[in-house]
């Protein structure tokens, strides 16, 4: 009887087949097809022609792509620490079992369930010149209004504010879950050990949730490198491409200029950038662990 459980049979594969079919059709196949496309000259209507690495050469020598990479890196460098820091702050502040904190947890998380169109609509209303909330505030204070969505520098900043507002729920929830895993008696031991609030935070709380902080950082790096919808709807990459992220460059190349091969090449480059960034983050965190 026990033997029949252990024996491997091909019919057992039927049980995992539904998952495998979906996995290969929707993940593995597109991944490799994308790599293949990037080595071909393809437009959306005609067949392909193998051209080796020439698409990559074109992308890497395109100043618009350089600008998009710069924009995206700046965006990630500012938004990810903000999301992690603010998420940590909210999680620490709301790590209580009062009714008020449960309500606020729900409130902060609620923005995450909105679609990008709603989010950008809300923030357009805030940032739009003349009738926008910020414009009204500036008027009341008697200050010169800033064209948040149409000024170089401010446009990317505005996209960042909307993004942090939209994405803060997940980091907060993950960090809250981690905080609640810390056994209460560690804090009691620390209280008997005369540890002040700051010492408890830096020596007990933060080390205990360090793996989750790293996880949140990696998730956010991967997500924020793929910035697209907010930039497209709020600023359309403007002014003068100063808020165009890499994904928007890919979109314009492949679906507006119909140069699918070049778009695929840019996608592969983004894939490599994200992979490197996440690996680097992971390497930094695991290296300190050993030391």
């Amino acid at each position: 009887m026990a033997e029949s459980y252990r024996r491997s049979r091909w019919s057992n594969a039927l049980f995992v087949a539904p998952y495998l079919v979906v996995f290969f059709a929707l993940l593995v196949f597109p991944l490799f097809w994308g790599m293949w496309l990037s080595l071909n000259k393809v437009d959306l209507f005609g067949g392909g022609q193998f051209i080796g690495l020439r698409n990559y050469a074109r992308v890497l020598s395109d100043p618009v792509f350089h600008q998009a990479v710069r924009n995206t890196v700046v965006f990630v460098a500012v938004s990810v620490p903000t999301l992690v820091g603010l998420g940590l702050f909210l999680a620490l502040a709301l790590n209580k079992t009062t009714r008020g904190s449960s309500f606020l947890r729900g409130l902060y998380f609620s923005s995450s369930i909105l679609s990008v169109t709603i989010v950008t609509l809300i923030w357009r209303i805030v940032f739009i010149p003349n009738d926008g909330l910020m414009a009204l505030i500036f008027n009341v204070l008697g200050l010169e209004p800033i064209g948040f969505l149409s000024t170089k520098g401010w446009s990317l900043f505005s996209v960042g504010v909307a993004t942090v507002w939209w994405c803060i729920g997940l980091p907060m929830m993950l960090l809250l879950a981690a905080l609640q895993q810390i056994p209460a008696d560690l804090y009691e031991a620390a209280a008997l050990d005369n540890a002040g609030k700051w010492r408890v935070l830096t020596r007990i709380t933060l080390p205990s949730i360090k793996p989750t902080i790293m996880l949140v950082a990696v998730i956010q790096i991967v997500m924020q490198f793929q910035l697209f919808g907010q930039a497209l709807i709020m600023t359309n990459g403007g002014p003068a491409g100063s808020s165009r992220p890499i994904v928007m460059y890919i979109y314009e190349t492949a679906f507006i200029r119909w140069d699918v091969g070049m778009g695929a090449a840019a996608s592969e480059l983004l894939f490599v950038i994200i992979l490197c960034a996440a690996m680097f983050q992971y390497w930094i965190s695991s290296r300190k662990e050993v030391a």
Partner: peptide
């Protein structure tokens, strides 16, 4: 105090 679960700081 010595706790039942020892409550040692794991890190």
């Amino acid at each position: 105090m010595v706790f039942q679960s020892y409550a040692l700081y794991p890190h």
